[in-house]
């Protein structure tokens, strides 16, 4: 059996009384795409922060391809192949789109010179920002910022990419473009963990869905079975859980 690209073992994290993770286990196989749903405040973004090394869990271990990375700082995790996007895009506002990508291609993917230029431009073109490569990132609208987040994640040449609500706030046609894009890179062998409230975007992309609530994964498996799970429905009661059938 191949080593999981990402393995979380017994991760716990609390902020005072608020439990955001409690003895949480999660394993991601190479090339696998996993969706994570859960009510607001369930700890989804904190989970990503812990995987990406921005925050430390109170206890538990994280390993990548069999190597314990629990003590690695964020920048080193990017370098060894954990890419991430921020829920609220955090571009380098004073730099151009191309320069944003170049940072990830050089410091993240470890490329130099023309190879770095090529990767930066390629990822920019790939997400549809080819026309605005020279534009100042701070001048971009929401859709372009979301695309830039995704492109930056791709530019660092990850083995696993953490997507944090990249479809939130987008129109339906925009979501459709995004889904196609993410399916494309996943089919090239990139493992994806995708937190999303736009559930139909997930169900079109992933074959495995987990629901995070109260710091635990209360369901994990086939997307449609998870969504039909009474416990999951219960947790989501009063929040907007819509599948494509519901909105149609």
């Amino acid at each position: 059996m191949t080593e999981p690209v990402l393995a979380l073992r017994g991760i716990s994290k609390r902020f005072g009384e608020v439990v955001v993770a409690e003895d949480l286990d999660l394993t991601v196989a190479p090339g696998e795409a996993i969706g994570i749903v859960g009510p607001n405040g369930a700890g989804k973004s904190t989970l990503f922060s812990m995987i990406a090394g921005e925050q430390k869990p109170d206890s538990g271990a994280i390993s990548m391809l069999g190597r314990d990375i629990s003590s690695l700082p964020a920048q080193d995790r990017t370098r060894i192949g954990i890419g991430r996007t921020f829920q609220i895009p955090r571009p380098f506002e004073g730099m151009s789109v191309f320069e944003n990508l170049l940072v990830f291609a050089t410091s993240g993917a470890g490329l130099h010179g023309h190879a770095a230029y090529t990767r930066a431009a390629e990822t920019g073109e790939r997400v549809g920002l080819g026309d605005v490569l020279n534009a100042q990132a701070g001048s971009l609208g929401l859709l372009a910022r979301k695309r830039l987040e995704l492109a930056r994640g791709l530019a660092s040449d990850p083995t696993v990419l953490l997507l944090d609500e990249v479809a939130g706030g987008l129109t339906e046609p925009e979501v459709a473009d995004l889904v196609e894009l993410i399916r494309g890179v996943q089919q090239e062998g990139l493992a994806i963990v995708w937190i999303e409230h736009v559930v139909h975007a997930l169900t079109q992309t992933v074959r495995r869905l987990a629901c995070l609530a109260g710091g635990r994964l209360i369901a994990d498996g086939d997307p449609f079975e998870v969504l039909d799970d009474p416990v999951v429905r219960e947790v989501y009661l009063g929040t907007t859980l819509t599948t494509e059938e519901d909105t149609a």
Binding site: E54, P73, Q75, R84, F92, G94, M95, E99, T106, S156
Partner: peptide
């Protein structure tokens, strides 16, 4: 390049491998 990125957003810069 790294320094300019840090100027704009340090957390984001670390996520970029800096």
């Amino acid at each position: 390049l790294a320094l300019t990125a840090i100027r704009d957003d340090e957390v984001s810069a670390r996520a970029g491998g800096i």
